[in-house]
Design a protein around this nucleic acid. Structure first.
Lengths: 343, 343
DNA sequence: CGCAATTTTCAAAGCGCTTTGGATCAGGCG
DNA sequence: CGCCTGATCCAAAGCGCTTTGAAAATTGCG
């Protein structure tokens, strides 16, 4: 069933039917009702493509998911983010289109999206320090919102970020307050902006108390379980091992627990652990009492907000770029405790 | 840059330019070259929407991601599956469009996709027993491939599935061979077809050795870490606790390890654990030596194959429905060992 | 060289929608 | 009654592409 057939069936012109359905005022309320009823009856839905062609809008938002080339890894956060954003799109009649891309073709993917006029805007995932995509999108004139920020970029752009620096500063302070003086950092890849900021917050907290930042107890990698395990195991085996650790992801923290237990230590007593927690639906940090003390910020909520920002920016292109900075919540769980006394 | 502008610039008709770019034979090889060069120079890419309108194809594949209403959970497997499928689509000039939907609106989402002519086909995720979506898609005539199968559906349909029954039968046999006689099952929701089949395989293996299937040591739930923990803890607290467990997901198995250690037991000695492992990129089951003994089958590979099947089915609608049954690999890790002697 | 057979190119229609610029119709007013 | 207004409705153009049917250019061959 298309517009023409529907209008024929109703004995009306396509114009009138189109207007009735799109809520224009120049159509009699009675006929509008008649049209709407018929549309429902015949399950008529305008073709997105035709509508897009006619209006010049794509009615679609692109998400370009970077896949780390070396590690072939998909960010586990992705599913929940998309779930948040998807609801917003559906409510507003937008489709979500996904592209997978490794770092090498990333630019081509964005250019392609623009040239094919496939989307009205895109969400930039996993921004790196001084991320070239921001300049690129500015240049080709594709509206976008960044999930995260990119240090070093001086162009204005819209973003939603979690306050990574503050979260890790606070987490570090919390450990310092518990008496820990040697705190390991098991971070994500530090060319990723979020990891860079987290490290910053960590370092700031240490320096504020006159504690030196020691590269020997700082690691940076893709945040897998195995990495969390290895990094922790290696640091615990050092001469002057940390009594506490900070993790950038619950997944790595899980690996950490494995290492701690394998070393015959008890988490929360011999070793304290704090992790960042994206509040993923399938990886809740325990029930009422968190397993790990954590800085929590829901990535699903972030997805919904980013989608809102992008749709708003598309609706009104003159709007100045919006910024949202979410604060993580510090949840005290059972993985932290006072620093063990030195005997 | 659109077709018209490009053809003007070349002094050719739109027809010729279009044909040159789409590889039709009735165009001089010299002009084709000239056209292709110009297209590259001006970064010309045909508008997907216009092309779709003209050809009647959407050049897009839909993925409808079910979100469990009660648990608001996104399947963690999803990211990797999409990564596998996405590459195939990109290579073939297709877009991937994603819709989020809870169980209640699922039917409307598929109908909408069809009515709006937004996709040429869809991938059905997370099939349930006697899944109504299969009949629906047949009815509305939207090509599809199911990732998994649906017991009880008598209509023919294309699917790719992992041999769940066999995998769990084999895993159970493995434990039985180690001397275990009391084996717990920590399964996914059993209205999900895969969980149903896994339970079947488990039960068959037990019955083949004359061991009764005991509901007291079988649980079924969304496969979260917390669930794995609680189910294991509860079963271990029973009078006649299992000496071995089977898990439907690595995530739950991680929770299991937590419960085992909390109970002061040692995994692989006091308690044996086997889990299914989807080989997710961010949740590898250890390095060379698996942490958990596991039945492994890459969901990313599954994604790529499903995409291939769907594109083939769309290209040739007369093709009979294809079926692919993948066998899981049994990886022996450090979480299993001989059944502890009864003292 | 001339004519038919090919090759190469093109104008125009059509895909399903929106939107512009009128038409038509009823009602109101002098 | 005639004209103007506002409310309804409509025909047709246009969005950017593909594809049909035909024209123009080239080639082959006697």
């Amino acid at each position: 069933m298309n517009l023409k057939q529907l209008s024929l069936k109703l004995g009306l012109s396509q114009t009138t039917v189109s207007r009735a359905l799109n809520g224009y005022p120049e159509v009699n309320e009675a006929t509008r009702l008649r049209v709407e009823r018929a549309a429902a009856q015949y399950q008529y839905r305008p073709s997105t493509r035709a509508k897009g062609l006619a209006t010049g809008k794509a009615l679609a938002i692109g998400h370009v998911i970077p896949i780390s080339t070396r590690h072939e890894m998909v960010n586990p956060v992705f599913g929940d983010f998309i779930a948040g954003a998807g609801e917003t799109y559906a409510r507003n009649g937008y489709e979500m289109i996904l592209s997978i891309s490794d770092d090498a073709q990333e630019e081509q993917v964005y250019r392609g999206l623009k040239a094919r006029r496939a989307v009205d805007g895109v969400v930039v995932h996993g921004p790196r320090i001084d991320d070239s995509r921001i300049r690129l999108l500015h240049e080709i004139g594709l509206p976008f919102v960044v999930h995260g920020r990119s240090s070093g970029v001086d162009l204005p752009y819209a973003w939603l970020d979690m306050n990574n620096r503050h979260a890790f500063q606070r987490a570090t302070d919390f450990l310092l307050d518990l008496g820990h003086r040697r705190i390991g950092l098991v971070n994500g890849m530090e060319f990723m902006d979020f990891a860079h900021r987290r490290r910053d917050g960590y370092a700031m907290a240490l320096l504020a108390r006159g504690i030196p930042v020691d590269p020997a107890i700082m690691q940076s990698h893709e945040m897998t379980e195995v990495y969390g395990y290895q990094a922790t195991r290696d640091m615990l085996a050092q001469d002057n091992p940390p009594t506490a650790f900070l993790y950038s992801s619950l997944v790595s923290a899980i690996g950490a627990r494995r290492a701690v237990e394998e070393a015959g230590l008890v988490m929360g007593r011999d070793v304290s652990i704090i992790t960042h927690d994206d509040d993923l639906s399938y990886l809740k940090n325990g029930g009422d009492i968190p397993i790990f003390t954590a800085t929590r910020s829901s990535v699903r909520v972030a997805g919904a907000k980013v989608a809102d920002m992008l749709l708003a920016a598309i609706a009104d292109p003159d709007l100045p770029p919006q910024h949202i900075l979410l604060e993580a919540e510090l949840m005290v769980g059972r993985s932290t405790g006072p620093a063990p006394r030195k005997d």
